[in-house]
Amino acid sequence: MATEKIAKAYRIRDTAADVDELVKHHTGFVEFINQFFRCETIRNEYRGQDAALQTLQRNATALAREIEKLAPATGRLSSPENAEYPWERDEKILVPCTFDFPNLTMLRQASGRAVMNLVERAFNDFERLRIQ
């Protein structure tokens, strides 16, 4: 949920996105990630390191897609696993606090930690960074 909110905050402040549409949906983190990597500050920091920047963006986009799936309103029929409510599978009730979320294994890898560092930066540098 935190990633959804930071994505909406940047997009409301820095883009011409329709506010009413943004607040209706639980997605938008992937779009924010792509815009964040176009940010002049980020591009300047990775000047001459195009391969590293592309790898980080690819990993961030992949992880952002998986994080978006954690919202219960997103793809509930095809992917009932979510971070808020219990769901049923094979006649068992599963709850988020005990579920392993195998789609998030990247978080335990260096690439996932690098992405989460970027998310932390988006939170900490909100006043300084602009996505447009």
Score class of each variant (00 low, 15 high):
T3R: 04
E4T: 03
E4F: 05
K5V: 13
I6N: 02
I6Y: 03
K8I: 00
A9M: 14
R11H: 06
D14A: 04
D14T: 12
D14L: 12
T15D: 11
A16R: 14
D18A: 11
D20N: 15
D20S: 14
L22Y: 07
L22G: 09
V23R: 13
V23F: 14
H25L: 09
F32S: 06
R38Y: 01
C39D: 10
E40M: 15
T41N: 12
I42T: 01
I42Q: 04
R43I: 05
N44I: 03
Y46I: 01
R47P: 03
G48R: 08
G48V: 09
D50A: 12
L53G: 03
T55N: 11
Q57C: 11
N59H: 08
N59G: 02
A60D: 01
A60S: 15
A60T: 12
T61P: 02
L63V: 09
A64K: 01
A64T: 09
R65T: 08
R65D: 08
E66N: 13
E66T: 04
E66G: 00
E68Y: 09
A71T: 07
P72E: 05
P72W: 02
A73G: 01
R76Q: 10
R76S: 12
L77Y: 13
S78P: 00
S79R: 09
E81G: 02
E84F: 12
E84P: 01
E84H: 08
Y85I: 07
E88W: 07
R89Y: 03
K92L: 11
K92V: 06
I93P: 00
L94T: 00
V95K: 13
P96M: 08
P96F: 01
C97F: 10
F99K: 00
F99T: 07
F101S: 02
F101Y: 15
L104S: 09
M106K: 07
Q109N: 05
G112C: 10
G112Y: 08
